[in-house]
Design a protein around this nucleic acid. Structure first.
Lengths: 243, 243
DNA sequence: CGTGATAATTCATATATATGACTGGTTGAC
DNA sequence: GTCAACCAGTCATATATATGAATTATCACG
């Protein structure tokens, strides 16, 4: 069929163009969750290139974490992969030392607003929807979060019923708005609680805080969310792999 | 020549066996710094496999960061790559706001000793050499470090002349002891300065501290160094990519 | 209705080969 | 001597093909 591989290119190698083309078809939601994407042979035929080249393109997307191969079965989307919950930073233990438990999330505010300077800078726009929530483990408030998402990508977010909100936002972003968060940068520092934050987290003003600022990016690299989370520094614990 | 690919295998695919074989030849130091490793065609001939398979093996090592390809020239070792200096966590600025300057390192202690519990656990041995040093930027003490390295991998380290020590240890590890640090895990938490640390860092006891515990691993995955570094939390700043 | 063999499909490994692009040295004209 | 042209070596891209391994669907048999 030698379908045309869309724009994108300026004499990029074939495998790179196919990789990008597939990435954008993935982002478009063309392929639902549980079915495999077309087979390598089929894609090769569709795009008029050889199977080896298709494999190389798919290799790239697998490495990026967008696809997953299953021998004998097919190649599948790999939806979340992205377990970026901030709770992994905070080790909260019950009196018994058990690493409990179910995180809960209390929505305090949700409204279209103007982004604060830092958020606007990260998102490239100040037309945003602001969210404030308090997250707890075992009824202990742990994280105070302030989030801003681009109004142009999340139109209607303010009027979503409270019931659709679970503890995790990224699945919601994808299911309701087709925004697939693929990557994020975290920025950690330490500071001290002001009166408002201290009250929410049941700390004393001036108590040490861990401050996590995150910018989350879409599949195509657009920043879609900026957030700042604050939690007691005493419980803070971060683990990172380098190399 | 169909050289025998060494032990390793239990019916692993050819490319995986070559990958491992090459990794061990790299670790052995067989190939010096500035010369390329044998060409793909040559390796294919040596091991009696096809060029495509060699490429796949090399691909893996490139992805791991051990090798680097240069089109038209050859495939080279990629020695350090590993810029893991702890200073990237601490933003120290002069009065003018300039992000100065040259890090210096004052060696306070260096001796064969018994590892503290946490270090022994990470290293799998308590026979270690301990190092204590104070690291400064622009004459401001910034980091107080306590390091432990395996005595079996660094025999003779205690008696090295002070003159060979630069600000960075990992290059020294490699050049003097053939230990190539390839990977590390950092563990960040928050604490408060005790009297000793406070004195070294010119802080007050009880001042907030950022605590970084690091385990560094050799190419073959053996833990070779454990360290704990402490610095003022006020200056601490960490940036991480996830996804 | 289950169950077990069979077949079809799909990714995984491997080979052989051709062409292009880039690098670094050599050669030769000026 | 300088510089351009050339050339050999090396990785990069791409094709075509064959075989193996894992999964899934099908279908006949009891």
């Amino acid at each position: 069929m030698t379908a045309r591989i869309p724009s994108a290119d300026e004499r990029l190698p074939a495998y790179a163009r196919l990789r990008d083309a597939l990435a954008s078809r993935i982002a478009s939601g063309e392929w639902g969750g549980s079915d495999p994407i077309p087979s390598e042979a089929r894609l090769a035929h569709e795009y008029g290139i050889s199977v080896g080249t298709v494999r190389k393109a798919v290799d790239g997307l697998v490495a990026e974490g967008l696809l997953e191969r299953r021998q004998g079965s097919g190649t599948y989307l790999r939806r979340p992969s992205f377990d970026a919950t901030l709770f992994r930073f905070f080790q909260v233990r019950g009196a018994d030392g058990a690493p409990a438990s179910i995180p809960t999330s209390e929505l305090i505010l949700r409204a279209r607003t103007e982004a604060p300077k830092e958020a606007a800078l990260a998102l490239g726009t100040s037309d945003v929807i602001g969210i404030i929530r308090l997250r707890s483990l075992s009824d202990q408030p742990v994280l105070f979060e302030e989030l801003y998402i681009r109004a142009d990508r999340f139109s209607g977010f303010e009027s979503l019923p409270d019931s659709v909100f679970g503890p995790l936002l990224y699945p919601l972003y994808f299911e309701r708005f087709g925004v697939l968060v693929k990557r994020a940068t975290d920025d950690l520092s330490f500071g001290r609680a002001d009166v408002q934050v201290a009250a929410r987290l049941k700390l004393k003003p001036g108590d040490p805080l861990a401050i996590i600022k995150r910018t989350a990016f879409d599949v195509d690299g657009t920043p879609v969310e900026w957030r700042v989370a604050r939690g007691s520094a005493a419980q803070f614990h971060y683990r990172s792999e380098i190399g």
